[in-house]
Amino acid sequence: MSELENKAKNDSTISAGEKIAQKIKDDKGLGQGVILFIIAFVVCFAGSTLLFPKLLYSKKEQPFNFDHYLHVYEAGDCEACHYLREDGSFSGIPKLETCMECHVEEPLGVTDDEVVFVKEYLAKDKEIPWHVYAKQPDCVFFSHAGHIDTGARMDFNECHGPIEETKTSRTYEENRITGYSRDIWGKNIFGIKKNSWDRMKMDDCAKCHKEETGHQGYCFQCHK
C-alpha cells in the first residue's frame, strides 16, 4: 500500500535549500575561486602536455648509431643505398648485403658502433633490425617512384628532413596504442608543423596532392 503523503514534510531539507540560496548570493569567495581555477587549469594543462607524450610513446634505441653524414660523403649520394629497382619498387633501407659491398671482412673505422655492427650482425650474418622512423601504417601504399626523379621530382628532404647531415641515430618513439612511429603525428603533441617533414599524416599527403595535382586523390591512390 502507498505511503501516506502527510509524513512528507521535511523541515531540514527546506533549510538546506535556503542555505544554498544564501551561498549563491554571498560571492565573497568568488575571486579566490577563479584564481584557484586558473592555477589548477595551468597546472593540469602544463602537466598533461609534458606528461602525456611520455605516456603515449615508448622509446626505443636503434641497434647502433648510423652516421648518415659520413656515408653520404663516402658513398657519394643517397642512391648508392636507397634506389628504385627496375620494376619501379623502392629498395628502402638497405639489407646487410648492400652494406657488405663496402664493409667486407674487416671493420671500416674504429667507432664503437662499427664494432657492434661487425660483431653482432656482419659476423653472424644477421639483418639489422632498424626501427624505421618514416614507416607508415600497414594500410598505406606509398610510391617512391611517383614522387622522386621518375615522378614528381620532389627532394627527399621534403618528407625526410635534412637526414643526410645527421651523425647519430635519434631515439625511435612508438605510439603505444597504434604502434606507429611518432614521426607520423610529429614531434609536436598538438600536431603543429613548421617544416614540411615535421608530420606525415594523411592530411599532409592530401594537402600537397591537392596543391600539386588539383585533386587530393582517391582512397586507393595511397591505400592498399
Binding site: 620494376d87 619501379g88 617512384a145
Partner: peptide, 18 residues
C-alpha cells in the same frame, strides 16, 4: 587486385611513361 595496379604504375614511372 589494386596493389597490382599500384605496382604497374610504379613500373611505368620507372620507365618514364606513367
Amino acid at each position: 587486385c589494386y596493389h597490382r595496379y599500384q605496382a604497374a604504375r610504379d613500373k611505368a614511372y620507372y620507365h618514364g611513361d606513367k
